[in-house]
Design a protein around this nucleic acid. Sequence first.
RNA 1: GCUGAUAUAGUGUAGUCGGUCAAUCAUGUAGGACUCUCACUCCUACGACUGGGGUUCAAAUCCCCAUAUCAGCACCA
Length: 478
Amino acid sequence: MHEKREKSSDLPPLPDAEGGVVMRFAPNPSGPLHLGHARASILNDYYVRRYGGSYIYRIEDTDPKRVVPEAYEMVREDLEWLGIAISDIVYQSDRLGIYYEYARRIIGIGGAYVCTCEAERFRELKLAKKACPCRDLTVEENLLRWEQMLDGTFIEGEATVRIRTEIDHPDPAIRDFSAMRIVNTTLHPRVDATVYPLMNFSVAIDDHLLGMTHVIRGKDHIANTRRQKYIFDYFGWKPPHYLHYGRMSIEGLVLSTSSMHQGIADGTFTGWDDIRLGTLRAMARRGIRPEAVRAAVIEIGCGGTDISFSWDNLFAKNRELIDKGSDRYFFVQDPVHLTVKDGPEQTAHAPLYPGDEERGYRTITFNGEILIPGKEMEGNDLIRLKDLFNIRVTGENTAVYAGDSLTEIRAAKGPIIQWLPPDQTVPCRILTPEGIISGVCEAGVAGCVGETIQFERFGFVRIDAVADGCVTAYFTHR
RNA sequence: GCUGAUAUAGUGUAGUCGGUCAAUCAUGUAGGACUCUCACUCCUACGACUGGGGUUCAAAUCCCCAUAUCAGCACCA
């Protein structure tokens, strides 16, 4: 029993890992981290923790057009929130000199050439398995061209360094892919440069130089892995072990950073932490705990199958984490006013957490006037005001005291609902992915900013802010 | 089109050397117990090996074909 439980929470072992591993998380700094990044960073983190070793956070900022300067800081915050144990940070933009050196070397040994064909022209040749004229240049000519890329003789789009593979390789994705290019129309926020490595080149060089032993990444990189192996081969390096996990789609969510970016720009979203986005900061704001994300990701594992991420599974893990720590309060959605006749003056003592009196009680004093959720009026005439007494609805806005008996209400199968006296509430709006729900809640909620609480019979929420006496909450989950 | 990866219940996962798998665990759904919440806890039920061949005494597990899904074929990562 115990063995099984442990087994299911353990991911399969990694080859050649017993002596420790060196792994990496290598995002492009184009925005904050989202669920997809969480998977990559957590899976790698899991194995580094399991086997020991180091975990390098490598910032792949070699495309000046795709660098969002604020992202450097956002990513670091997100990793911290996730609890990723980073041992080193490497900026690829600091390492351009290294890439230049290795580019020169690989050209020098005939493993690459400088191509001046137009991209479209090369593409046609490649698909026809035909070499372009540049491929036959001598090493000396290529080295000269390489110097000309660096000294500005060539400008953006005029030359690219290609790794020599097999021009008739069965997989067109492999044939003579690019390794270095010129970008002089966009400035890089961190460095002054015009020649940049393409991902496959810088990744291969760094994976070797930084001593990577294992690489876990999405299967969209399978072709890149094959390409990078050419570079390892040319230099005589031993490549790391690779593991490719499947694509992950998320129910009702757009994960692409660029579309999120656009949505924020045009006002569709309020920001990177808009509740409708799959960013980690959005989830944090909703009251999702990083441990829940980690548990969900570990459970998904490294399988190569394409999966659709289910919020239900994440929510279940989160509920397990936050339930005990979340105090209970009343929230009355779409309040309807009722005047209750003949009700005895009573004060309700509702536990902050049922089953644990030690945590204390909220006191709500009945004074003849109450607000109840509008939808509870439908089809119900006998209603139990939770922790108070029963009432019988007699009209649009009137009701009459109907005794204290709890057994009676149960026998009648009447609902036991939340309620509040109008003078003991604060307005409250709850932001959900589907829209805003408004109502009133207990005044005590105003003291819970930053915490997750549970609105009874409604669900868990995180109290985000209190302004002008009005509570703003984010819906976590039921 | 070419190259490759994957295919277990609504969702996620276990099952890696074929038999002990009419298939694990979680989530979900339904019902029940408990409870002054539709939460928590507990019980019960429901629900899957993509299809077709083959190898074998025996296949979810091996082989082949088909189908489906996804990815790559960028001077993005």
